[in-house]
């Protein structure tokens, strides 16, 4: 009966066929109970997210549809006036986040390059890493206080620049960490190959290692932007708020998060509705940026 590719085997070569192939009852029950427990915990963890999205959609979506596109194109209304929108806040959020990224991306990426590629675990890079951890634990309002102290007081005015500086402090540790991870993910063999062909550390890092780690850097930047777009506390006394369009970066600037804060506690129904709509927009912005980050990491080389 044996197929031509099989060696000749005697039936006695195998153990007797008295094996019970069905899973023992106790193990089966235990497995099912544990699976059920895990699913329950997952549902519990997703509950807050689901209810937040549900609230936002039920309260914010109607305003977006009924007033489309005026919520995006008009300025916030004065009290007791109907309609209006928050175009200045959308622009303000984009501008402050952009300024934040402009400051934090170069510093963050270069810091990570130093700690991983050049410092390689020396005292300074360990110290820098420790500082990064401390920085990521700093409450966001402290970052706002810092920007207030060094930018607002110096310039004599609240501004988008001050808001950007505050946000950059919050973005910095995120960018440093993800870039570090990206650089560490490059295999040792590639580094040895670079050394083997006589590349200096600088040539290797900037021609091969950093380009290969770029998806991670992009992820870090988008995650940091998502974090910054939702921050309110550091903007309260740096970018402040503006009922109108800011004409320059040196003026108080409206942002979505501060608009939500101001209008959610305002005693006017129209303003409350605008706050809901703005909250929905912020969440959608963060969501799309996070999805972008995920697709970027999936393109990684290693």
């Amino acid at each position: 009966m044996s197929s031509p590719n099989q060696p000749d085997l005697n039936p006695g070569d195998f153990a007797s066929s008295e094996i019970n192939y069905s899973v023992a009852q106790g193990r089966k029950v235990f497995g099912n109970v544990m699976t059920g427990l895990v699913l329950f915990c997952v549902a519990l963890a997703l509950l807050p997210l689901g209810s937040i999205l549900f609230m936002l959609l039920t309260n914010g979506l109607s305003r977006l549809f009924t007033d489309f596109p005026s919520v995006f194109t008009e300025l916030p209304p004065p009290p007791l006036v109907d309609g209006g929108g928050f175009r200045n806040a959308i622009i303000g959020t984009l501008v402050t986040c952009f300024i934040g990224a402009l400051i934090s991306v170069p510093f963050g990426v270069l810091t990570a390059i130093y700690t991983v590629e050049f410092g390689q675990g020396n005292r300074l890079s360990q110290f820098v890493r420790f500082c990064t951890n401390v920085l990521s634990g700093v409450p966001s309002i402290i970052a706002g206080l810092f920007a207030y102290g060094i930018v607002v007081l110096a310039m004599g005015t609240f501004s988008a620049i001050a808001g950007g500086v505050a946000l950059s402090v919050l973005m910095l540790p995120i960018i440093i960490r993800t870039t570090e991870e990206g650089l560490k993910s490059i295999p040792r063999e590639v580094r040895q190959g670079l050394v083997g062909i006589g590349a200096t550390n600088f040539q290797g890092v900037f021609s091969v290692i950093l380009p290969a780690a770029l998806p991670f850097v992009a992820t870090g930047v988008t995650l940091a932007l998502a974090r910054a777009a939702g921050e309110t506390a550091p903007l309260l006394f740096t970018a402040l708020f503006n009922q109108f369009d800011a004409r320059s970066l040196r003026e108080p600037t409206a942002t979505l998060s501060v608009l939500i804060y101001n209008y959610a506690i305002a005693p006017y129904k129209n303003q409350n509705e605008l706050a809901w709509a703005a909250a929905l927009i912020v969440v959608l912005m963060i969501l799309s940026v996070s999805i972008l980050a995920r697709t970027l990491t999936s393109r990684k080389v290693y």
């Binding site: 063999e189 590639v190 670079l194």
Partner: peptide, 10 residues
């Protein structure tokens, strides 16, 4: 130098 495991650059 040529290494044990092939290590082309990405």
């Amino acid at each position: 130098m040529v290494f044990q495991r092939p290590n082309p650059f990405p």
